[in-house]
Design a binder for these strands. Structure first.
Lengths: 176, 176
DNA sequence: TATTGTTATACTCTATAACTATA
DNA sequence: TATAGTTATAGAGTATAACAATA
């Protein structure tokens, strides 16, 4: 994978459908999965923003709302664990969602250390009305692949996230 | 891909190697490629930080140094284009690299609007001595997959980035 | 003592808008 | 007019550290 050295000369010929070829810098960078993953994440954020611009919402915020729609009154540790966010980030995201009145928070009556969140009527409505747009963003992201390859990609991607879960600073729900 | 509704009940049986199963929230989230891509990017940043902690450097900064090591005196538009960064971000990253003395900047004598960057001796040394660690981070990221599947994943990933390049706010070098 | 969440602080990446200088 | 870069401003994600409240 170390393609340093011996790069072909940069050729600026006529029309190329892609920027990945004939550029020594691109040849090196595009061989690094980490680089491509950053780019794909960046692209997904852009697609999501474009699709969901009626409400201003990020993928992470949508993910939190999704989690709360499936399980109300989760505490922040659990939310962070589901989404793969550390507790500082989780608190930040929840604060923004609360300011937008999309969630409510309360102290957990059973354990006064913890704060639980619930999606509001308004939050549920926002999530419902954005759901199609969110799916459209996902589909546009995967559109360059055939249906079969989309399946394969998703499978491999899951394996990678699952297999590396422990290495992230904010691993999602630990092995049960 | 819309797996909403009809989730199996959450089962908390004994030991599971993964958190992705038997949790309705995880089942929904992990079916969204955008979610997994964010997680994998996050994991890569953590792995990179862990491997490269001797110097404090991010994947993006390493990418810029890589580009400049292959082509000195690139201007900021070109650098942004190679890395997929908009011009504000590019200027930010370069400012930090300059403060760390890893690059130098000058006005382009041929076009006084543009500023060109060059990697310094120190920057080159940092890049060289981190190269192995960077590769280790890449390899750890891909480690859960077989060699064959790593190849397949990288191929599909390239196709996705390439096919969606135009949708990012900061597309890499446009089709030539 | 351990856990939950907070506040404070910091860095990085990303983006838009308005501006200057130059072409 | 168009382009390159800057400054200003903002939002978002990520992280560490110190702290209070609670278990």
């Amino acid at each position: 994978m170390a393609t340093e050295g011996k790069e072909p000369k940069p050729q600026r010929s006529q029309k190329r459908p892609s920027g990945a070829h004939f550029d020594p810098i691109q040849q090196v960078l595009w061989a690094r999965p980490g680089f491509l993953v950053r780019r794909l994440n960046q692209i997904h954020y852009a697609l999501f923003a474009e699709e969901c611009k009626t409400y201003s919402m990020t993928p992470v915020q949508f993910g939190v709302l999704t989690a709360l729609s499936l399980n109300p009154w989760l505490d922040q540790t659990a939310i962070g664990s589901e989404l793969g966010l550390d507790r500082t980030t989780t608190a930040d995201v929840l604060k923004r969602l609360e300011e937008k009145k999309l969630i409510e928070r309360r102290i957990n009556p059973a354990d006064r250390r913890s704060r639980q969140s619930m999606i509001t009527e308004e939050g549920y409505h926002a999530m419902k009305s954005l759901h199609e747009s969110m799916m459209a963003a996902q589909q546009r992201l995967m559109a360059p692949l055939s249906a079969r390859n989309q399946e394969i990609f998703l499978k491999l991607l899951s394996t990678l996230v699952d297999g590396n879960n422990e290495y992230s600073r904010a691993p999602t729900r630990a092995a049960l």
